[in-house]
């Protein structure tokens, strides 16, 4: 066997190795259960009188919903600062879901929508830490400005927007979707 032939064989084997196909690997993190969310509470503090705190709670969100304490009674033409508190009462001790939302604020957005005819405006006051074009609103804290006496529903939705949060309610799915009764008097 000539040197040329031998070198050709060696060269072919090396080129074969060097350009061999680049394998691909894939892993799927197994599906897990969603965190349970059983209770949502709106807590509003009158800015003109901080001792005046108004709350409303919707319970049993994971099953038979209890709306018996869901009414917010607010003063007309007043300003309130508000927070939303979320609990998971199925775990022991009771889990503070609001704290988990705070940790994952970059992929969550609360949307507060007063029904037409209900004279109130809700403005979210907290922001996440997403990079430009963020940061975007979160909604764990908010301001409420009431107008003239009226009644109606306040629709509260928590949108879960993994890597799709853009400051609008459209992307993602809903972790919470409920209504509170509001009476402005």
């Amino acid at each position: 066997m000539t040197m040329k032939r031998i070198l050709s064989v060696l060269g072919f084997l090396s080129v074969f190795f060097l350009v061999s196909c680049n394998k691909e690997e894939q892993s799927v993190a197994p599906t897990i259960d969603n965190e349970a969310l059983t209770t949502a509470t709106l807590q509003l503090t009158n800015k003109a009188n901080p001792t005046e705190v108004v709350t409303a709670t919707v319970d049993g969100l994971n099953g038979t919903v209890d709306f018996s304490k869901d009414t917010l009674r607010l003063k007309a033409n007043a300003s309130y600062s508000g927070v939303i508190l979320l609990l998971d009462k199925t775990s022991s001790p009771v889990a503070d879901v609001s704290a988990e939302i705070k940790e994952r604020q970059n992929i969550h957005l609360f949307v507060y929508t007063p029904a037409s005819g209900l004279n109130m405006a809700v403005t979210i006051t907290d922001k996440d830490t997403n990079p430009a074009p963020g940061p975007y609103p979160v909604g764990l804290t908010y301001d409420v400005r009431t107008g003239a006496a009226s009644t109606g529903k306040l629709h509260v939705v928590l949108r879960h927007q993994p890597n799709t949060k853009d400051g609008t309610a459209t992307p993602g799915s809903s972790d919470l979707d409920t209504n509170f009764d509001v009476v402005i008097q």
């Binding site: 691909e24 894939q26 892993s27 799927v28 599906t31 897990i32 994952r104 890597n163």
Partner: peptide
């Protein structure tokens, strides 16, 4: 590339039911 721990980490961080990570070598 060990893609499994990456998939589990991204699933947890984005709070999603499932994350799929694909990588070449």
């Amino acid at each position: 590339v060990r893609t499994q721990p990456l998939a589990e980490g991204y699933r947890e961080d984005f709070d999603v039911d499932q994350a799929i990570v694909t990588s070449k070598h």
